[in-house]
Design a protein around this nucleic acid. Structure first.
Lengths: 116, 116
DNA sequence: GCATTACATAACCATCAGGTTATAAAACTG
DNA sequence: CAGTTTTATAACCTGATGGTTATGTAATGC
């Protein structure tokens, strides 16, 4: 289901370490050691973060001798962007259609009804 | 700091109930009761979700008698989208520049170096 | 075969997220 | 003023997150 993928994707994106890993991987593959280097954090911690990213489908891994190179996957990023864009568009459409005014009128009306 | 706002925003988006609330609010303001209605969940639970959304700046609230109407805010949605787009673009640029091939060549070279 | 490198897994711990019920508070209603 | 509606807060529980250290495992190099 889409909802669960979005759960996993947004959850994965909600951590600065994981976003930094994504930023790094957007410039090309990297091994776990390479990814861990910039952080003041143990290697298992990075492995855990990678598993979270993998679970969300954001990262896939290959094999090169002992290394497990990580590659960024586009699909979940696209799904997340699509979701955001959809509701941003909907909101802005409402705004530009001046529904805001209509809405306020309706709100005042409701208030009136309740008072009656 | 930007990172903390992104933390809060993505974290807020990582829950299906909160995404449903955002979807609802993209069509106009709503009170807490109205937002709670579709869910099999207590009112305090919804209030908590709203507080999370508010902390991320995704939702702001007004006052109409006892009601606290919720309004969706565009800024954090835009920041989140921008972040996603940035790295998606970077990744796709790399792809279309055929860096993938260069990368594989470099990878093989490295493997060679290590073996030497 | 043995040591090394790169990574994964297990066990553990503290904190937080997401829900509950019960209660308080704030504003209207009659 | 008393009662109702709407929302917030407090106290509590359970399970998941994010980190640690210690250990296991798979592939390579000598």
């Amino acid at each position: 289901m889409l909802a669960e993928r979005l759960d996993a994707t947004f959850m994965a994106l909600a951590d600065p370490t994981r976003r930094a890993i994504i930023a790094r991987l957007s410039q090309g593959e990297a091994s776990v050691m390479e990814l861990a280097a910039p952080f003041a954090m143990s290697q298992p911690a990075i492995s855990k973060h990678l598993k979270v990213l993998e679970r969300a489908g954001l990262v896939s891994r290959g094999r090169d001798a002992q290394r497990r190179p990580c590659r960024l996957e586009a699909a979940p990023l696209r799904e997340a962007t699509d979701w955001l864009e959809r509701y941003r568009a909907r909101m802005e459409a409402r705004f530009s259609r001046l529904d805001t005014l209509l809405e306020e009128m309706k709100a005042k009306e409701k208030r009136h009804e309740r008072k009656k």
